[in-house]
Nucleic acid binder design. Structure first.
Lengths: 107, 107
DNA sequence: GCTTCTGCTTTCCCGGCAGGAAACCCTCGG
DNA sequence: CCGAGGGTTTCCTGCCGGGAAAGCAGAAGC
């Protein structure tokens, strides 16, 4: 592994968590993500913009109970990217033997 | 997992790789790390300074064959931090079901 | 002991990125 | 037409990482 080279867009802590947060469900409301990630509206909006620019997420604007609400979705590409990134890290961890307490698993 | 909160020092891509690179051996020469990580002298020096400031690495200056050479060591704390960080990511991945190809594990 | 060389370190400067605040839509309900 | 709620964009600021180059210390050579 000369250069694991991580996906910077997804590697960014908040975005990493956002994507992870989106994996298990079909879609999350903007406000839910904002609260769960403890981000300001603007910060989240920017992160989603970045993620969407890469095709990792999509925003679906709709209305419910007279209120407008935006739903965030993780795209297949986003899931792919996240999985790939995590896999990359795990691969690194495995090679390194970093399985909590570096024991006899040196290889 | 309200706030996985990653260790920013170790999360930084290059530093993450540097630490991983140091795990399997007792010590690496500065130049080896530099080349392996494909970093400039100054960049590596700065990263090592940051890691050392956290007590994650130590530098041992010595001489061999008339040449001076600095050996980089990952400390126990550094290994701990790396392991912890990776574990955190794996935990996140596991919760999320990100095991390459997200199947029927929708919840 | 002084110069030169080498190997790391520090300084300087720059560009990029993330965050908060606030101004700005846009849409819905009155 | 007028708010009000929900996101978005702008503006500005601080931090952080990188390269270039100057700086510095130890070692070899003279």
């Amino acid at each position: 592994m000369p250069h694991p080279v991580f996906d910077e867009v997804i590697h960014e802590p908040h975005r990493l968590r956002i994507c992870a947060y989106l994996v298990p469900v079909a879609g999350r409301e903007f406000s839910d993500v904002r609260d769960a990630m403890d981000l300001s509206d603007s910060a989240l909006s920017k992160h989603l913009k970045a993620l969407s620019a890469c095709g990792y997420t999509t925003l679906e604007r709709g209305v419910r109970d007279g209120r407008q609400l935006t739903t965030v979705h993780l795209t297949a590409a986003g899931r792919e990217a996240l999985c790939g990134h995590v896999a990359e890290l795990q691969r690194m961890a495995r090679i390194v033997g970093t399985d909590r307490r570096v024991g006899p698993r040196t290889r």
